[in-house]
Every structure is written in C-alpha cells, then in structure tokens.
Design a protein around this nucleic acid. Sequence first.
DNA 1: ACCTGAACACCGTTCAAGT
DNA 2: ACCTGAACACCGTTCAAGT
Lengths: 204, 204
Amino acid sequence: MARRSDHSREQIKEMALQATEKILIEQGLAGLSTRKVAAAIGYTAGSLYLVFENLEDLLLHVNVRTLEKLFQTLQGSANDCPEVQTCLRNMALAYITFAKDHPNLWSAIFERQWQNEMPDWYNDKIAHLFQLVEDKFQQLLPEARTDKVAQAVRAYWCGVHGVCMLGLTGKLDAISDHSTEELSNTLIDNFLFGLTSKKESRDD
Amino acid sequence: MARRSDHSREQIKEMALQATEKILIEQGLAGLSTRKVAAAIGYTAGSLYLVFENLEDLLLHVNVRTLEKLFQTLQGSANDCPEVQTCLRNMALAYITFAKDHPNLWSAIFERQWQNEMPDWYNDKIAHLFQLVEDKFQQLLPEARTDKVAQAVRAYWCGVHGVCMLGLTGKLDAISDHSTEELSNTLIDNFLFGLTSKKESRDD
DNA sequence: ACCTGAACACCGTTCAAGT
DNA sequence: ACCTGAACACCGTTCAAGT
C-alpha cells in the first residue's frame, strides 16, 4: 500500500469525526486515541495528521458538533413556553437533560485543558448558544442596559453550568440528595426573583 | 540495588506527595506521570505502587491537601465580616482568588473523571468545606427547614463554582469582558436577595 | 522485606520511503 | 499525491529477580 485514494480528504475527515464521536460515547475521553480512531476507519494514525492538526484539533471538531446538537435542543425548549421565566427554567433543565443523555460528549467539552486558544469558528458557536439565553433576558429586562443584560446572562449560565457539572460528576452525592433539577430551579428562581425585584424597586 | 531502606514508607509517601504537587503546579495535570514523580524522589516508578494504589490514588491524596488549604483560606474569609451576606460574598471571592492563585492544583480536582468512587476520607473533607458555607446560610435563614438550607447552600456553591470554572478556563473570554469577581457578585447578590425576600414575604 | 529493571500494552506525533 | 510503517519519546502498571 501507500496510495489508495479510496476516499477524498473530506470523506476521511467525516469518517474520523464519526469514529471519534463513537469512541467518545462508548469509552469516554480517557479511552480516546488517534490509533483507535485510525483503526476504526481503516487507516493508520499518520493519516489523521493529513486532515487534522492533531488529536486536540480532531476533538475540537467533534465538540463543535456537540455544541450544535445542544443548540438544537435549547432552541426547542426556548420556544413553546408561555412566559420568559418558564423558558429560562426549561432551558436550564434542557441543558441538564442533554448533559445526562450525552455525558461523555458533554464532558469532552470541559474535561480537558486545551493547549491552544479556541479558534474563532469554535467561539462563534458558543456565542451562538449564549444568544439564545440573551434573547430571553432581553425580554425579561427590556429597559436594562445591554451590559447589565450580558452580565446577567453569564451569571445565570455559569450558575446552571456549575449545577450541571457538580451534579453530573457526582461531586455532590456524598453530601446531598437533592436532584440536579431541583438545585437548578432553586438557583434560577431565586436569581431571577432577585434580578427582577431589584429592577422594579431600585431601578439601578 | 534492590533493598535500600533509606526511607520509611511514610517518608516515601510524603516525598511522593510533595513531588507530585510540584510537578502539578509547574506542568499541570497533563504533565504529571508516575515516572516523573519517581525520578523526582530518586526511586523507580514501581516503588510508588508500594505506597499508593495507583496514580489516581496518589493524585487524590494531593487533592485532599489542596482542599485543606482551601478550607483554611475560606475559614479566614468566613470570619472577619460584619454581616452574613458580606461573608458569603467574601467566601466566593476567596474561592475564586484561590483558584486563580493555584490554577493547576485547583484544576486537578475537577479536570479528570475518576475511575472509582471517592473514598470516605475524601468526601469528608468536602463536607467539611460545605459546612463553612452552611453555617452562614443557617445564620441567614434561621427559621428555614434544614433541607431548605442545604438546598440553598448547594445551589449557591454550584453557582460560584460555575462562575469560577468558566471564568478561569477562559471559556467566557470570547464573549464577555466582565471579570469573574463581578460575575460572582451578580450571581450571589441576586440569589441571596431572592432567597431572603421570598423568605420574608411568602415564608414557604 | 524492599526495590529494581525489564516487560507488557499502550500513547501522540513525525517523516522517510514506497507506489 | 497519498498513505504507510517504522521510529521516537513517552505513558501506567506488574512482577520475577536480586539483595
């Protein structure tokens, strides 16, 4: 062998991405390796470096697909709700459900500390996700300054993420029996109540 | 060689822990290996398995030391504050500061997905930490049911952790320029305002 | 009893060589 | 031009063998 051209670059890329996703789902990030991916698609490890920079780059491309799936899910729960607060609560629950349904794909996004800065096409996807939440906060606080809204969105989403992370990795099990969903609602309800009350009474 | 008895089991354990901590601080979790630790203390990798179960066990023992340092820091900021809300805000800021000051030690606690369940001596340390926050919430909501307080503590701490995590790993940089500390205060102030207002008005 | 050193089964990444 | 396969520099873990 040594010149097969059985597949185009794009085909190899797609095969590698699907194989990586499968391994990730089945064996988690710790079970992922370039050699396994290569074997799964019938090539040698070296070939992967023709279509991806390295394992990190490959993983980043899988993660962006996960973010796209997450976007679809959140978008679904962002509509179909009578009032804004319900939407925000549902979106948090949808996020938690997504993480529970795809624990290894979700972990792969946050588990590893990356060598390099995130590329723009990746950051754009995250901004896209945040926009969904930002729209809701815009509705909730129509008169607030844009940076106030941005601040609220981030605080909200960090909080939800923290609940999700500590809940799903079982870091709270030893201490608490409260479900992740309950925790999420407690955090959100109080946060939003604080946010909207202060808005009405003090208007700062 | 092959029988040196230069050091007792306890001494080797201590040397290994210190070497691991040093490597972790300087090179991060990705740069840690049993072979490096062994070389640093003048033994072979095999010897580590006489005093620790495996790398995960070794890391867990380093992490529990980090948790102890964190406990000291939080305890410091838990006293020396006029009112409860200020304490809670200070403790969150102390947590964030600790994470910023010891990024690799802090990450090592959360970065990896563990093979085994956490041992009791580890979970006890975490419970110990939570107790610091729980005491403050007990003061804040003196008439609340114990499980309500527990719920509030966890929601609060998850939120703070989420801010810290997404803030420190730079997962928000692309989107927001708000400092981690500001985010933390936004989350906490609104959460606590919601929590205490509802307590007074509705008393559920 | 204590520790080694080799072995086993893996890694990510590079690149000369083959077609 | 495309892909291999060997090489390099690493891993965690085990365990027979040496003192």
